[in-house]
């Protein structure tokens, strides 16, 4: 059920990329400037399609909106140290993929407060880092780089396999020593003893 009415009790149906629908209160939805621009005045006939984002992401975004419904009007980002326990839990319990999905969805829905907090969180992640450290943090390998890396690893693995095979072969030869003819075995033992003697005489 959707309605242009502004009462906070009104629920709107949201459709995710999976085609699933779930409802969100009008008060929470009105924190999205995108929603306000597109649907607030004209209403929506049927579920509102935010089909670029999956259900989990949208639910997470609107969970934040529902929570901040009663907070005073947004007036710039809070310092991370001033965030409430609920806010901190909200961010901390997300993995990186979810965090990126949430910031992208929040950016699309133009939810100023959530977008700002997310951006400030990333800025904080980079605080005090030098250029080299930043390169490590923000530069993720591209598909080509990953492929090249994989090739190198495959080569290394192949080389390691060869070495292992050679080692196994050598071990096999040692094991077959016992099977050598008696004369050859005597000669081998003599060689070993000679080497031992020589090493003593050197001392």
């Amino acid at each position: 059920m959707t309605s242009p009415a502004s009462s906070s009790e009104v629920k709107y149906l949201i459709e995710s990329s999976e085609g699933n629908t779930f409802d969100v209160s009008g008060a929470a939805l009105r924190q999205s400037n995108t929603f306000n621009a597109m649907f607030l005045n004209i209403g929506a006939d049927g579920p509102i399609p935010f089909t670029d984002y999956n259900e989990a992401t949208l639910k997470k975004v609107f969970e934040y909106c529902e929570h901040s419904v009663n907070e005073e009007n947004y007036s710039g980002p809070k310092h991370q140290d001033d965030l409430s326990k609920w806010d901190l839990n909200f961010f901390n319990e997300m993995d990186q993929k979810m965090f990126i999905d949430v910031i992208n969805a929040s950016n699309f829905l133009d939810i100023e407060r959530l977008t700002s907090y997310c951006c400030e969180r990333i800025a904080r992640m980079l605080r005090g880092k030098n250029t080299q450290e930043m390169i490590k943090v923000i530069t993720l390998p591209t598909a080509e780089e990953l492929e090249a890396k994989q090739k190198v690893e495959e080569k290394k693995a192949a080389a390691a396999k060869k070495v292992a095979e050679k080692a196994a072969e050598t071990a096999e030869k040692t094991e077959t020593l016992e099977e050598l003819p008696v004369q050859q075995l005597v000669q081998t033992t003599r060689n070993k003893l000679t080497r031992k003697y020589l090493s003593f005489s050197n001392e």
């Binding site: 991370q80 961010f91 901390n92 997300m94 993995d95 990186q96 979810m98 965090f99 990126i100 910031i103 992208n104 950016n107 977008t115 951006c119 969180r121 990333i122 904080r124 992640m125 980079l126 450290e133 490590k136 943090v137 923000i138 530069t139 993720l140």
Partner: peptide
Amino acid sequence: MTVGDSPFPLLRLPSLL
């Protein structure tokens, strides 16, 4: 997501973000 040193794809975010 906790604030730490783990890699973050900042450059894959939209320019606006």
